[in-house]
Design a protein around this nucleic acid. Sequence first.
DNA 1: GTTAACAAGTAAATCGTTTGCACAGATTAT
DNA 2: ATAATCTGTGCAAACGATTTACTTGTTAAC
Lengths: 341, 341
Amino acid sequence: MSVTIKDVAKKAGVSPSTVSRVIAEHPRISVATSKRVKAVMDQLGYHPNLMAKSLVSRTTRTIAVILPKPAEELLLNFFFYELIRGVLAQLTRAGYDLLMAGGSNEQEELDTVVRLVRGGRIDGLLLLYSRSSDPIIHFLRKENVPFALIGRSLDYEDVPSVDNDNVQAAYDATNHLIAQGQKRIGFVSGPAKLAMTQDRMTGYTKALAEAKLPFKEGWVVEGEFLLESGYRAMASIMSQPEPPTALVVIDDVVAFGVLKGLAELGYRIPQDVAIVSFNNIALSELTMPPITSIDVGTYQLGYTASQMVLRMIQQVEITARQIIPHRLVVRESSLRTVTYN
Amino acid sequence: MSVTIKDVAKKAGVSPSTVSRVIAEHPRISVATSKRVKAVMDQLGYHPNLMAKSLVSRTTRTIAVILPKPAEELLLNFFFYELIRGVLAQLTRAGYDLLMAGGSNEQEELDTVVRLVRGGRIDGLLLLYSRSSDPIIHFLRKENVPFALIGRSLDYEDVPSVDNDNVQAAYDATNHLIAQGQKRIGFVSGPAKLAMTQDRMTGYTKALAEAKLPFKEGWVVEGEFLLESGYRAMASIMSQPEPPTALVVIDDVVAFGVLKGLAELGYRIPQDVAIVSFNNIALSELTMPPITSIDVGTYQLGYTASQMVLRMIQQVEITARQIIPHRLVVRESSLRTVTYN
DNA sequence: GTTAACAAGTAAATCGTTTGCACAGATTAT
DNA sequence: ATAATCTGTGCAAACGATTTACTTGTTAAC
């Protein structure tokens, strides 16, 4: 069917091993032979069978990204894509391929990971978020598979991971609102299980405490990383007797929902309610008003995490935990006084 | 190292072939043996080596998506992600994995495809756009590899593909503006090589011609699927002696740039310039004003195209060319009279 | 009671590579 | 001149599955 190493060998009048050595640029092969074999190779359009190669080398030059449980939902958040962009840039550079796989629930997700790892289909993987007591992380450590986590593990200190200082980031975001004179600041949050959510919550409360500003249960709403989540949160938060006049929002897409919700309720932004959000996706500057957002270096996150996995595969020593710096990008949504031209 | 079929065989007191047959649910295996072997299998945590399996079966349960040349750029367009969402939904459903690979120029792209196909790494692939005289399509047809194109081939009639009726879509978009009383309608276009761009251009001119409205070279600008592209187009289009009062824009992200450009030049939308765009990505309704857009069923496009590839792999007869219906979603950006509440 | 049919399982070849070991001839060291 | 080392290559055994063709023990048929 397809042209194999044997065909090349026969045509070049050498043994298959020699052809293999030519491909691998083995030093013991003479220049003459190498040239001749190579000529035959492209004359025949030979390409090594990657499966056979992988089988014997136990290597696939493939990294997997596991799509968390509600892949459908995850994929609605643009943060993810910016991340993947970074991942792809790194992997392509290194000549690795990216495999995307998922499951429709936590069990299936684990099954997928086990299948890929035990089945020898991948050389390493990238985990996007970490839940508390994550069975996948547990499995990967046990099996000693190269992997890196984007985020922070709540269970183990020494999991290779790339993260932001989310406590500090939320602290900065909240303080930015405080600096604008805001006194009643709420928090539109994400899934409580995630380390990221917990850290940002910590930063938020810390800033409030330091400024001696009130923290109210009713000003905090937990949700998903979805537009509707932010939209719905407004109904509940703004129906409080004394609603907040400023909001820290866990994610830009959620903030889009917040914008929509507030607009429908008749609030003006930022005059009535000021907003600071996270991730600074490309479209945050296009909404009306543009959203102030903490840039977490999403692309860098993906790029660095992939690099980490690649290094682990090459047995290069790595720093277990890398922090990508964040940066507050101020736009109109958070400013006390705004001038429209 | 890893537990193999032989280990299972030994422990279960049968031959490797029997274990293999148990896995494949071969009818010639007795229930008793099957049970016993299966018990041993999960006692040992056995998982078949996918490479070995692929080697002999010449099958990988993997579909590749080739990222076009400027992957970095492509990934900035959200249209792509919605597409991938559809692809993943279909593939996950069918138990296939998705491999994303790319190259940094057309040659590398082709090389990647050749490597993956000849190397037996994938069972089929999905092409995102088609250029004229695309060497990749040429190669895939020659090699008889299952693949589907999202879009339309300019070279071959019978390439399996999923597409919109882009001529009609652009015709509808333009007519919508005409119905609003617009007389001077421009077109912010995409790369001229792409079938999609050409088709939309055709629909646009057709609508103008039928309505006996003027077509002016200066009102048409070619660009990329990038925000900046739309932004820059405004400088050139609006500096015409008689600038258009309405624009058909090739893509939502480009339209975002158009919005930004027009705002900076002091035009109000839709009062001074009305806009209709394509793809209807999630954020089109969040801009100010929300953008009227042709929903092309992006998710469906990805979902259907993947299905087509899977069918080809399973040797099921397919319709070579499927058309996904489009739908005009009217929002404020295109309306003659607007009321803000 | 012999043979044919069948059920359940095994042995061995195969898929396309890589790689340790062997070996012949050339080169260098002593 | 002989031993020791180097060079360049081939043989054959992996890697971990699947699958064809063969064995064996039972049951049914005549």
